[in-house]
Design a protein around this nucleic acid. Structure first.
Lengths: 232, 232
DNA sequence: GTATCTCCAAATACACTGTATCGCGACAGC
DNA sequence: GCTGTCGCGATACAGTGTATTTGGAGATAC
C-alpha cells in the first residue's frame, strides 16, 4: 500500500503530537534553509523533539518523505488563464516560481514519478484547462512542457548554486571560472564557444526560460494549424 | 616488542599505477553496474586495489570525480548532420542515447555547470553546426534544447527505475501502481487525468521524446520565418 | 656508508547517514 | 491485579566523505 492512501496511525496523545503534515513541514523548512542534504531523519526528528525512529510510524522510507515534500509543494501549483497556451505557460511559470522558493525541488522533480494527491490535482487542473486541445496533442504537449521545465529549472538552480559556492554574485562567479575559461579559450580549441561568450546575447535566467518556453508553445501551435513537422 | 616476535611488515605490493583516467573508468563501471550510489570513494579505490585516501591525490572532492565522469561520457557526444535542425536533433538524440548507456548521467546532468574539455568540445561542435542561425537565435535555441533533453531523459529514467523497482516490466509496474490509481480515480477527484489514462494516446518513451523535440524545433523554425511569437 | 630529511600511501579517526533490532514502559483486556 | 500487546526510544550496524596521523621507503647530505 502506498503512502498516499495508507491511513495515518491513530493519534497517540501521550508523548508528542505528530503527524505526516508536521513531519513534512519540518522537512521542508530544513530543506529550504540548508538544502536537501540537511534533511536527515535525525534532523527532522530533532526539529520535532522526537526520536528518529518515531518517523517510521508515518513513513516507510526516506524516499517517501521526499515524495511527500514534493506533493506538499504541489498543493500550491495550479495553472491560471484561459486556453491551452495560457494554461501551459502559467503552469510552467508557477512550477518555476515554486522551485525558486524551494530550490531542493529541482533535485527531486523528474527523479521519480509523482502520484500524490496534490500532484495529481495539479495535473488534472492543467488537463482541464486544455480542453481546446484534442488529447492526442494535449498529452505530448504537457509532457514536453514538463520536461522542458524540469530541465530548465534544474540547470538554473545548478548555476545559481555554483555562483553561490564561489562567492556572492555573478561577478564573483566569473572571477572564479572566468580565468579558467580565458586560459581554456586561449588554446583555440573552442572558437565557437569563445565567440558565443564574447559576442553572444547575455540573457538572464528568466529571459532564457521564457524564450525557450515560447519556442515550445509555438511548436505546439504549429501542429494545431497543420504547419508543424510533427507527425500526428 | 623485540624483533623476534614482531611480525614482518605486511608485504607491500608495489603501489598500483594510477591516473585520473583509470579512476574515472572504474567509477563509470561501478555506476553503470549498480547506479550512482555504488560510486563511493572506498569502492572505487577498492576496484583499483588502492587505499581510499590515495584518490585524493587526483581529485579534491567526490564532486570533482562526478564532474570527470560526466565529461568522460561527453567525449562521445558529438552532433552529426547539416543545418541547425539536424544538428540540434542529432545532439538531443545522442545525449539521450548516452543516458541510456549510463543512466546515472540523468542524475548529474544540469546538476552543476559542466565546463570540462569534452563538454566544451561538444558544445563547440553544436555551435559550429549552427552557423545558419544568428547567435541571438542559436544561444536560446541550444539552451532550450538542452533544458528539454535534461528534463526529458530525467523523467524517462525516473520512470524506468520505478518500473524496475516494482518488478520487471511495464506490466508489473502497472500491477503495482495501477490498483492505487484505480482506487484514486474512483474518488472522482481527477476526472481529466482519469480520462487521459483511459482514452489518451499511449506513447512509448522514444515517441514522446521525439514529439516534444520536434515541437521545440518547430518553434525555433517559426522564429526564423518571423512567425513565432517569441520576441527578438 | 651512514644519518637525516622528505614525501606519500595507508591506517585511523570523526561525524554523519538510513534503517533493523531490541528492550522497556504504559495502557487494554480479562 | 496480572498479563499481553504495542509503540516509543535507545542501541546497533554497515556504510559514507574526508581530516589527521603514522610509518616506511627513497632521496639527499655529509
Amino acid at each position: 500500500m502506498l503512502v498516499w492512501e495508507r491511513p495515518e496511525p491513530p493519534e497517540r496523545p501521550a508523548p508528542a503530537p505528530l503527524s505526516r503534515e508536521a513531519i513534512v513541514r519540518a522537512a521542508v523548512r530544513l530543506a529550504d534553509a540548508d538544502g536537501l542534504d540537511a534533511v536527515s531523519l535525525r534532523k527532522v526528528a530533532g526539529a520535532l523533539d522526537v526520536g528518529p525512529m518515531r518517523l517510521y510510524g508515518y513513513i516507510d522510507t526516506k524516499e517517501e518523505l521526499l515524495d511527500l515534500m514534493v506533493d506538499a509543494v504541489y498543493a500550491g501549483i495550479r495553472p491560471e488563464g484561459d486556453g491551452w497556451r495560457e494554461v501551459l505557460r502559467s503552469h510552467a511559470e508557477t512550477v518555476r516560481r515554486a522551485v525558486h522558493r524551494h530550490e531542493w525541488l529541482a533535485d527531486l522533480l523528474g527523479g521519480r514519478p509523482q502520484l500524490g494527491p496534490n500532484t495529481l490535482a495539479s495535473g488534472n487542473a492543467v488537463l482541464t484547462g486544455l480542453t481546446d486541445l484534442d488529447l492526442d496533442t494535449a498529452v505530448p504537449a504537457i509532457s514536453a512542457v514538463n520536461a522542458y521545465v524540469i530541465g530548465a529549472v534544474r540547470r538554473e538552480v545548478g548555476e545559481r548554486r555554483a555562483e553561490r559556492t564561489s562567492g556572492l554574485d555573478r561577478r564573483q562567479w566569473q572571477a572564479a571560472y572566468g580565468p579558467y575559461l580565458e586560459r581554456t579559450f586561449a588554446s583555440g580549441r573552442f572558437p565557437a564557444v569563445e565567440s558565443m561568450v564574447r559576442d553572444g546575447p547575455h540573457l538572464d535566467a528568466g529571459e532564457t526560460f521564457r524564450i525557450g518556453l515560447e519556442f515550445l508553445l509555438d511548436g505546439i501551435a504549429a501542429r494545431l494549424s497543420g504547419g508543424g513537422s510533427t507527425p500526428r
